Simulated assay, not measured.
Amino acid sequence: MEAWDILQVTHEGTNAVKVSKLQMLTSRFETIRMDDHETFGEFHAKLMDIVNSSFNLGEPISNSKVVRKILRSLPERFRAKVTAIEESKDVDSLKIDELVGSLQTFEMTLVSPRKAKGIALKAIKEESLSSESEDDEKMSEG
């Protein structure tokens, strides 16, 4: 028993340290937000680090609290998806993994069409510019 107590104090610290760590984690949990430049995967990893640390200190954060936190913390580009999820699902019974999968899929659809459109438009624009200049040359010669 004495060895267990030593290991516990070494790993978790004294009760005062444990309370302090929990307060810090609670504060981080309340203030964390996904930045505009951040991917959902990066945000999710930071949030789950807080959730797991709290669990390891004996204060688990409920599934529904984490789900609600994720939905509140997303940037504007996710607003349509958040609204759709809130209207179509029971947020209190929604599993974190299900929400994460849905948001990651949505993020992939946001990113890839933008890049493809930009490249396609650029290629078309360059092509049309070069054909216009050829037409201009033909007109001036003829």
Rank of each mutant, 00 (worst) to 15 (best):
S62W: 04
S112E: 13
K138T: 12
A116Y: 07
I119N: 11
L103F: 01
S128L: 15
G41F: 02
E141I: 15
T83W: 08
S53G: 12
V9N: 14
V111T: 13
W4E: 15
S27P: 12
R79T: 05
D90R: 02
E42N: 09
I6V: 13
A116H: 10
E141L: 13
E2V: 07
V9I: 13
F106I: 09
F40R: 01
K125E: 15
S20L: 12
I119Y: 08
V17C: 04
K65W: 00
D90M: 02
V82I: 09
T83D: 15
V82W: 00
G101R: 13
S73A: 08
V19G: 02
D90I: 03
T31Y: 05
E134D: 13
M139T: 11
F40G: 00
I85E: 02
K95A: 11
L99P: 04
T109M: 10
V66P: 00
M48A: 01
L110E: 03
E87Q: 13
N56C: 10
S20Y: 06
G101T: 11
Q104E: 14
R72C: 03
K21R: 12
S133R: 14
F106C: 08
S133D: 13
G101I: 09
E132A: 06
V66L: 01
T83A: 11
V19T: 07
K115Q: 10
Q104T: 15
T83R: 09
S133Y: 06
E132M: 05
S53E: 11
K65S: 07
I6G: 11
S128D: 11
P60F: 05
D92E: 06
R79F: 06
I70Q: 05
F29I: 02
H11R: 12
D97R: 09
G118E: 15
F43G: 02
E42L: 08
V67G: 03
F29Y: 10
S133G: 10
E87D: 12
K115F: 06
S27H: 07
T10E: 13
Q104V: 04
P75T: 08
R28L: 01
A80S: 15
S102P: 00
L110C: 01
I70V: 05
S88G: 13
S88K: 13
I96T: 01
D35Q: 15
K117T: 06
D36G: 12
N15P: 10
N63G: 00
A84N: 05
E127H: 13
L103D: 00
N63R: 14
F43R: 11
V51L: 00
E107L: 01
K125N: 12
T14V: 05
K95I: 06
T109R: 10
D35R: 14
